[in-house]
Design a protein around this nucleic acid. Structure first.
Length: 309
DNA sequence: GTCCAGGATGGGT
DNA sequence: ACCCATCATGGA
């Protein structure tokens, strides 16, 4: 299998890690109700992203020649698609998005005998923590999702994206790009409350966008800090980002393996579902249940969430 | 109509 | 450090 760019076919095939199921990942993506940033058609996943200021559509599918390869194509077919640095950035994005560089074997080993995880890892074997590589998108999605049901959260995200984002057209389909910090930083609160977002969330979104535009907050900076607790402490100081949102971003964007949104209602419901308990688990109970998850708290949460979809 | 949802804040003990 | 009212809208 080739890991080099094929200029004729405009694609690259990435070798896959062993514990990987493309089907499980697409099933996970398909379950998102009203998702506006991803299109799935005929087993292929499409997403528009901006690479080096250039909007482009990424198509991901299982390789046709080698079933254990992940085929990445760039659509939109402008000159940008031919530029080597853009191609490399697209490949990095997909590796990050599908979390191809994590060896899941230790997780599956510990999950086998875990009373909460054993069923889930069996059902969803090969599922990856599908990420949100863009920090601004991850922060906004966390803020939008606070304290409302998921269906409404997806509706709000769609309105937000379609009001302030750009789109690329290809074969008669629109592929929306998540708005950039620049798109949002100069908005007035009323511009966002019009979408039925709460006043506070509108303020939070603008505030985060301004921090990023001012260069006071970036993914590179957070990754450079490295330590879970230090990053969390920094994020929680930002207005609108509490422990839940911070850990959500640590998990979905920064890929800190110990990220653990312990206050999450979905996690509570998943635990109730597995244990059969009537009452919501207490924080102490959750920590006890999670004692065997050291360094895999993030993946454990992701797999438990999956039970609810 | 009621309850609650991928929580966070600011004020109070 | 805990407790609590408040936010705000829509899904079930």
């Amino acid at each position: 299998m080739t890991s080099r760019w094929d200029n004729n076919k405009q694609m690259i095939t990435l070798p896959l890690p062993t514990e990987f199921s493309f089907l499980e990942n697409t099933k996970y993506l398909s379950n998102a109700p009203n998702e506006c940033l991803i299109r799935i058609d005929d087993g292929r996943v499409y997403k528009a992203i901006s690479l080096e200021q250039v909007p482009i559509i990424v198509e991901v599918s299982v390789g046709c020649e080698q079933e254990n390869g992940l085929a990445v194509r760039l659509l939109g077919n402008n000159q940008a698609a031919l530029c080597e640095s853009v191609r490399d950035a697209a490949v990095r994005y997909v590796r990050d998005w599908f979390d191809l560089d994590t060896d899941l074997q230790p997780f599956y080993q510990l999950a086998k005998t875990d009373k909460l995880l054993s069923g889930s890892v069996d059902s969803f074997y090969g599922l990856r923590n599908m990420g949100i590589p863009d920090l601004f998108e991850a922060l906004c999605w966390g803020i939008i999702g606070q304290q409302i049901n998921l269906a409404f959260a997806y509706t709000l995200k769609r309105r937000f994206v379609e009001a302030f984002g750009q789109y690329v057209e290809h074969d008669g389909e629109r592929y929306w790009l998540f708005p950039t910090p620049v798109d949002i930083a100069s908005l007035q609160v009323e511009d966002i409350t019009k979408l039925k977002m709460s006043t506070k969330k509108s303020e939070y979104l603008i505030g985060v966008a301004q921090l990023m535009v001012e260069g006071k907050l970036s993914k590179e900076q957070l990754l450079g800090i490295g330590d879970h607790k230090k990053i969390e402490k920094l994020l929680v100081q930002i207005r609108g980002i509490g422990p839940w949102t911070a850990n959500y971003v640590l998990m979905r964007c920064l890929r800190i393996p110990t990220a653990f949104p312990i206050d999450d209602v979905g996690l509570h419901n998943a635990i109730k579902y597995v244990t059969g308990a009537e009452a919501k688990p207490t924080k102490v109970e959750i920590l006890q249940l999670a004692e065997g998850w050291k360094n895999w708290e993030s993946y454990a949460t992701f797999y438990l969430w999956r039970l609810l979809y």
